[in-house]
Computed example of a mutant assay.
Amino acid sequence: MTSFLTKCAMDWFIAFGVVLGGTLLGGIGAVLIMEPPTTRMLLISEQIKIWAVVAAVGGTIDPIRVIESNLTEGYISPAIKQILYIVFAFIGAQVGTSLIQWICKGGNSS
């Protein structure tokens, strides 16, 4: 159980870090090419979210294969674990995107 929770936490932080780091560096790049950084950062945070999930769960199609092979063999627990890893990574990426949106919009929810 501990290794499962550790992997969930790591997937969350990796996805969060990919979104946050990629977006902040993209904002620096926008400044260097004379574009509005907040506009570019909002766009990047949405575009990079799916790649953050992919990076967090392993960067390949293997997690999907694990789900498929375990379900066809009748093993539900490993498939559910893989799905939960993906869910935790998605939540981390979404929190990163929400944080960037909050920062770029000045904390206003409008």
Rank of each mutant, 00 (worst) to 15 (best):
V57R: 12
T60N: 02
F88R: 06
K105W: 02
A55T: 03
L71F: 14
I91G: 14
G22Q: 02
V57W: 01
G106L: 10
Q101T: 06
I33Q: 01
Q101P: 11
I44A: 09
G107S: 10
Q101S: 13
A89G: 04
S110P: 08
V19N: 06
G27S: 07
L32T: 03
S98P: 08
V66T: 12
A56H: 02
Y75A: 01
G58V: 03
T72E: 13
L43P: 15
W102H: 11
K7V: 14
G26I: 04
V66K: 05
V66H: 11
L5H: 05
L99R: 11
W102T: 08
S98H: 13
I64S: 12
F90D: 01
C8G: 09
S109R: 14
W102M: 06
I33R: 15
W51N: 02
T38P: 06
L20P: 09
V57E: 04
I14V: 14
A52R: 09
K7C: 04
W12C: 11
K49M: 11
G92P: 13
F16H: 09
I103P: 14
Y75D: 01
M41T: 06
N70A: 03
G17L: 10
V18Q: 01
E46D: 15
G107H: 07
C104W: 12
Q47K: 13
A55S: 00
A89F: 09
D62L: 15
I61D: 07
K49W: 12
G96M: 04
V57A: 00
T38G: 13
G29N: 05
D62S: 00
I64H: 05
V18S: 00
M1S: 05
S3V: 02
M34F: 15
C104V: 07
M34P: 15
L99C: 09
E46W: 03
T2E: 15
Q47N: 12
F88S: 04
T60S: 10
K81A: 02
D62T: 14
F90C: 10
F16G: 11
M41G: 00
G17N: 05
T6Q: 13
A9N: 04
E68H: 13
M34D: 15
D11I: 00
T39C: 05
T38E: 02
I100V: 03
I103D: 11
I48M: 11
Q94K: 08
T2A: 15
V18R: 05
V19P: 06
A52Y: 01
V31W: 11
S69V: 14
L25Q: 12
A79C: 03
P37L: 10
E46V: 07
I67A: 10
